[in-house]
Design a binder for these strands. Sequence first.
DNA 1: TGATAGATCGGCT
DNA 2: GCCGATCTATCAG
Length: 197
Amino acid sequence: MGSDLIGKLLIRRLQGITLVGRVVECEAYDEGDPASHSFRGPTPRNEVMFGPPGHMYVYFTYGMHFCANVVTGRDGHGSAVLLRAVQPLEGLDWMAERRGLSDERLLCAGPGRLTQAFGIARAENGADLVRDGAVFLAKGRPPEAESIGVSARIGVNVGADLPWRFFELGSPFLSRRSMPGRGAGTGAARGSGRRGS
DNA sequence: TGATAGATCGGCT
DNA sequence: GCCGATCTATCAG
């Protein structure tokens, strides 16, 4: 499922520097899901989503932010997992300079924030995340199953009932603080199986 | 061809 | 808690 990404390491090499972050929050998007860019079929913008899994789908939104996804479905199927927050592990100084602030908790706490901190933009769309390159994913220490929370996705209107947001419980690096009144960890109905790679 | 809503963020009331 | 910034894709006319 989408939670398989939690705990993985996002590694970025650029300008002779290595940046590393541990994924602590992500959201799944799939065909048939009205909130997904793939809902209306392939277009020039989302074609990477319909390509083979293990690649990065980057899109520009709200006129100023990039968002990074990991394509998960088999070739021809439009599904991906949005990286919403990572815990910065290496290259914090560089990230802080790009972000214009020094608070570790805010460097990569949000889809637009983490792409800015990692220097991910249009050029990274379609990048192979499996092979060691300018940007890729590596296995980290997997989290305990009971430390993964599930909730509705953030920022979507349609499909808001789907519990397809996964995050590490209690992490101070999430895009939002613990949900008030919401039993974050309580077993929400698992939607479906994702995964590839 | 024009209008509008959007997988966001940061600043101000 | 609300609003503006500013580009894109999609939908209405």
